[in-house]
Design a protein around this nucleic acid. Sequence first.
DNA 1: AACTGTAGTTGTGTTCAGCGCAACCCGCGC
DNA 2: GCGCGGGTTGCGCTGAACACAACTACAGTT
Lengths: 262, 262
Amino acid sequence: MLAKDTALGRGLGLLLALESEQALVRDGLGVLEIAAIAGRDKGQVSRGLKTLASLGLVDRDPETLDYRIGWRVFAMAAQAGDRRLLTAAPPVLRELVASLGETAHLSVMTAGEVLTVLSEPSPNAVRASGWSGRRVPAHCTSAGRALLLDHDRAALEALYPGGALPPGGPQAPRDVAELARRIAVARGEGHAPTSEELEPGLVAVAAPIRDFRGRIVAALNVSGPKFRFEDHLDGAGQEIRGAADELSRQLGWAVHHSRTAA
Amino acid sequence: MLAKDTALGRGLGLLLALESEQALVRDGLGVLEIAAIAGRDKGQVSRGLKTLASLGLVDRDPETLDYRIGWRVFAMAAQAGDRRLLTAAPPVLRELVASLGETAHLSVMTAGEVLTVLSEPSPNAVRASGWSGRRVPAHCTSAGRALLLDHDRAALEALYPGGALPPGGPQAPRDVAELARRIAVARGEGHAPTSEELEPGLVAVAAPIRDFRGRIVAALNVSGPKFRFEDHLDGAGQEIRGAADELSRQLGWAVHHSRTAA
DNA sequence: AACTGTAGTTGTGTTCAGCGCAACCCGCGC
DNA sequence: GCGCGGGTTGCGCTGAACACAACTACAGTT
């Protein structure tokens, strides 16, 4: 059971040593320190780290000879994360649909627009799907609001030069200032509701999904007709946020200080 | 040099197998598949994966018995690489994309290969993303050229023993001498353009990023289709170089005597 | 310059764990 | 039932990981 008594396990101990607190405070560890943490002979540690380095799992500062976790690990997580999200999301979407009775989507941000990548239609959907692959503007949709949750006023200005927003639905924000205000509210709540901002009669609520670095990589959102869904928007928001947090966890994001913005 | 003939290296091969294309398309691999990719006996693979799993480096789907990248990798990834660079780079990338209209990347050198760490897709990209986490050879890419900018002839010889280079695109350099010559030209210019060295129809240009010691730690590069981007390569090079210098400054490097090599 | 200490690499004989192979287990479908 | 693909376990044999020590490199100190 214990991984200690296999050469692989011992070798990986070196890698895990680089995850320790000491490695964090000075951004790298020397061979002797790693040997001490892993409880192994320095000679073997030197050899083992050479192997890890040759695979890119650790990087070495040629100046100080310190080792730290390599870029390759970062890349692995980044690549695996995308795929992981796509496989982990469908059951979550189904669960939301089952619980809320409205259509649920997974969206990402591409080129300033919100792209819906997955959608799970509700049983009582008026119109049958057609959402997947669709692009909608970010400023007047709940998913867009969630995806922009970490953008401050300056970042929004950069996104919409001149402060003017493209046209949207009846209740869409008219300028960047208004958009920033609504985003701030959503940030406080942890979820982003919209009502008739894209189309008349359409309401929705969304929550952001973060990757291992805390960056917002996608959003979960549920939309429905105003007459049926409006009254449950807030409760739905809580639930969607929980679901989004669960997906974030699966991507390696520790959802502890949920209220704190980046 | 080669990591293959150590137990640790072989065991890690299992982990890296989960990074292969096959693993990414369906987010998980069975024992036999991993064994095939790593070229090892399935029995040993079964045992090896068990220890990797006990350390959290791989996760197992109890249903399908498939292995996937584990939670621990995501946790480690959060502290991998240079965090200052990772936070400073995205806005710069976005700026480049906005100005040049082509896809921009941040790359580093790992284990002799160029690893794309971040990429910001252009609005008119044919295919969205997919680049992040990809590894390409150093000798026939603009990013590789930039990352090798400080390598003199001797250092290159050491990197490619025998003077032979791995195969590349149509215009790739054929031997170390040719590579050294192109690097020398790039050093003079301050940026490294390549045309159809990796793939036909693909052109790119890159510039190096230095840390506070002046060591090249990363490269900024922009790539696009030949028909659209070729004519602007030189102007783009100037701009990319400026952006890279700005990042270098943020890392503490005083960019005054630009022509001087380390 | 010699002395001392610290960090890291490399050499070596011994032993133990990883190796390939094969047998075995389990669920599935013809 | 039988065969089959996927996974685990048992077992002799051999080679690589082990501890220890010798060695290099470099930075202060007197």
